[in-house]
């Protein structure tokens, strides 16, 4: 379970202060599928980064599985990030020097899994995203949709409890987007909590719950409202 109380995030540069998030209150239960929508620059990625322990925040309290995150040291945070969270980035953030196998292996190495276990996990997750035969390929040799699926495979290989996806279908055509969406939903059905940022109302419709961010303010909305807010 994940609980945020009054979380605020401010980016300070020399000239401006950006209130990327202000006063976010939110509880997410185990196994939920949540879609986050909102206009560009409204704070969606910031919200996801804080949720995924990638960024710190100025105010408020964030409790992840009973642990107060702001009290934790780097070492502990890194471990939580590695074990509990799978992140699918807005860009794919694959390492271009490494083949798919090695790309997926990176977080598993950080976790300290044995070579044998790693191999098994990597093969499983590549199979799951339908790229089982491509382990030795390099990211540049794949289409955008395939790269996105590798990114998903990397997030899944660690068997995370929370899967955070930042516009996982943003760069894909409708067909591809559907396929990827299906895959994520399947993973959610098997028990992984899914938090997904999207611009696509049709995809957002598939979530259990919809959250909207406007100027750093977060609110639950009914699914019926989604169409009106289309950007």
């Amino acid at each position: 379970m994940l609980k945020m109380n009054n979380i605020s995030k401010i980016y300070r540069t020399d000239l401006v202060e950006t209130h990327a998030l202000s006063g976010v209150n939110l509880t997410i239960e185990e196994g939920e599928f949540i879609a986050v929508t909102g206009p560009s620059g409204s704070g969606k990625t910031t919200f996801l980064n804080i949720t995924g322990l990638l960024e710190t925040f100025e105010e408020g309290q964030y409790i992840l599985d009973g642990e107060d995150v702001s009290q934790l040291q780097d070492k502990h945070l890194s471990r939580l990030r590695n074990e509990k969270i799978g992140f699918i980035f807005q860009g794919f953030n694959l390492i271009s020097d490494l083949n798919l196998y090695d790309n997926i292996e990176v977080p598993l190495i950080f976790r300290g899994l044995s070579k044998q276990t790693r191999k098994q996990r990597i093969e499983e997750s590549l199979e799951l995203v339908g790229l089982g035969s491509r382990a030795q390929h390099y990211p540049a040799q794949l289409s955008g949709g395939q790269q996105q699926r590798v990114a998903i495979a990397r997030a899944l290989a660690g068997k995370p409890r929370f899967l955070l996806a930042d516009e996982p279908t943003g760069n894909l055509d409708t067909m591809m987007a559907r396929q990827v969406m299906e895959l994520l939903q399947e993973i959610n059905r098997q028990g992984t909590t899914l938090i997904m940022v999207t611009h696509d109302n049709e995809l957002a419709q598939r979530a259990h719950r919809n959250i909207q961010i406007l100027d750093g303010q977060l609110s639950d909305i009914a699914k019926s409202q989604l169409t009106d807010l289309a950007v």
Binding site: R81, I95, F110
Partner: peptide
């Protein structure tokens, strides 16, 4: 920098 940042995001701590 991007690579290190990615390593950190994927769970490598500072000491690592």
């Amino acid at each position: 920098a991007k690579l290190v940042s990615l390593y950190r995001a994927l769970g490598a701590n500072r000491a690592y």
